[in-house]
Amino acid sequence: TEDEKKIQELLKRANGDVSKAEKLAQSQGNEELARRLREYANK
């Protein structure tokens, strides 16, 4: 999905570090994506 692409892109930029990727999403003002990242990471 589009969200998964965004999540994978963020994870790439954060070198696979979920908490960093989450902070990136939040810094972009994207709380929804940050929440999805957390769920994605907890799979």
Rank of each mutant, 00 (worst) to 15 (best):
G16E: 03
R35F: 05
G29R: 03
I7R: 00
L33Q: 01
A14I: 03
V18S: 05
N42A: 12
D17C: 11
K12Y: 06
V18Y: 14
A25P: 00
K6C: 15
E2A: 11
A34P: 00
L11S: 01
R36I: 12
R38M: 05
E32N: 07
G16K: 01
K12H: 11
D17A: 01
R36Q: 12
A14R: 00
A21V: 03
I7E: 01
R13V: 13
K20P: 01
I7A: 03
E4L: 14
L33M: 07
S27R: 07
K12L: 10
G29T: 02
R36H: 07
E9M: 04
A34L: 08
E22S: 07
E9T: 02
N30M: 14
A14F: 14
E2H: 09
E2Q: 10
K12T: 10
V18L: 09
K20C: 15
G16N: 06
E2M: 11
E39L: 02
Q28E: 15
Y40E: 07
S19K: 13
K6Y: 12
L33A: 04
D17T: 01
E39P: 00
E39W: 02
E22T: 08
K23V: 07
E39Y: 02
E31F: 14
D3T: 12
S27K: 10
A25W: 01
R36E: 04
S19H: 12
R13K: 14
Q8L: 14
A25Y: 00
E31L: 12
L11D: 02
A41I: 14
V18P: 07
G29P: 02
K43T: 14
K20S: 05
N30P: 01
K5T: 08
Q8P: 02
R38V: 08
I7P: 01
K23D: 06
K12R: 13
K20Q: 10
A34G: 05
L24I: 12
A25I: 04
N42K: 14
A25E: 01
K5N: 08
R38I: 08
K23M: 11
R13L: 15
E32D: 11
S27C: 13
V18I: 13
K43C: 11
N30D: 15
G29S: 04
K5E: 10
N15G: 14
E31Q: 08
Y40A: 07
E31K: 06
L24P: 01
A14C: 15
K43H: 10
R36A: 12
E31R: 06
S19F: 08
Q26P: 01
R35K: 13
R36N: 05
R35V: 07
Q28L: 13
E9D: 13
